[in-house]
Design a binder for these strands. Structure first.
Lengths: 158, 158
DNA sequence: CAGTATTCCTACTTAGTTGGTAGGAACAGT
DNA sequence: ACTGTTCCTACCAACTAAGTAGGAATACTG
């Protein structure tokens, strides 16, 4: 499995949003509680704060956040007190959700999804291997939620 | 998981060698038994025959075969009746062996192996995810041998 | 309404990888 | 010698990933 910078950044950004953007030293950067409104998540975190806390190039991150929003994983708000928040609780967003939002399918053979593989002759059985691999990966990434990762002990679900 | 053309070709070529280069229509192309010698495998198959039977560009395939030989998976012989044969029985060569021979590690994060991932802050747990994914992939590809894939029913071991 | 802060969106640049080619040199048999 | 094959190096073209730049749209504040 190849994890691109895009996927990596996306996950780190989602985790930072989920944690209310806790920096490396455990400092909260601008909580901005936004009390008294029906928006999802609790605190709006600015893109610049995310970029800072996880050392991600800001303008690159912005494109990623946009993808996450379009995939329905993030809620966003513009303007002076704008920022991003999770669209669902962290317990209901899996690693797989994030990966698929920014990177397409988990397994691909020469750029195409594993299902579309034109094998012939002795190679026919290979297709099943890729499908099995895809299933094995999905099992891990779909069972692990952002909330699991934020709990320091026992982070990966088995 | 991304399966590159190189990995894909390598597996198809290995399967074709294991099958004695059986073409799409089930025709045997030049068995060339090479009786009376202690070489591994049974029949030497020429690179050109492999390229033909699995529609792989010949000169590209040659580089791949070289890698497979250097990894100790193939035996080769030059000259008029030269060709390639498996260095071990097909039951003792796994899909993972072939993938690692041509492609390095199975899981990589931004080009680096999963173990070497410098996460900090809230993202610390991600490393364990990639390790779990790597283990899950390995479980599939290391349990499946070339011989399994050549048996048409029940090709992928569970 | 003016001004400011932020997300949103598009186009572009740059560097590296992938897929593939070409042309021989080394080697084995006849 | 001659032929057929693997071996090896260098090279090329296209694509993708990673990152940049510059604004337009939107939301709040005084």
């Amino acid at each position: 499995m190849y994890v691109s910078a895009r996927s990596d950044y996306a996950l780190r950004a989602m985790l930072a949003v989920a944690a209310g953007c806790t920096g490396p030293d455990g400092d909260h950067a601008d909580p901005a509680p936004r009390a008294g409104s029906g928006e999802p998540g609790g605190e709006l975190v600015k893109a610049a704060a995310l970029a800072e806390s996880q050392s991600i190039p800001l303008s690159f991150l912005q494109g990623i956040l946009l993808d996450l929003r379009r995939a329905g994983l993030l809620f966003s708000h513009r303007g002076t007190d704008g920022g991003y928040a999770l669209a669902r609780p962290a317990t209901e967003i899996s690693v797989g959700d994030v990966l698929r939002a920014v990177g397409g399918s988990l397994t691909s053979v020469r750029g195409l999804p594993a299902e579309v593989a034109g094998y012939h002759g002795v190679a026919t059985g290979l297709r099943d291997v890729w499908l099995a691999v895809d299933g094995a990966i999905a099992l891990v990434v779909d069972r692990t939620t952002l909330a699991d990762l934020l709990a320091e002990d026992r982070s990966v679900r088995r």
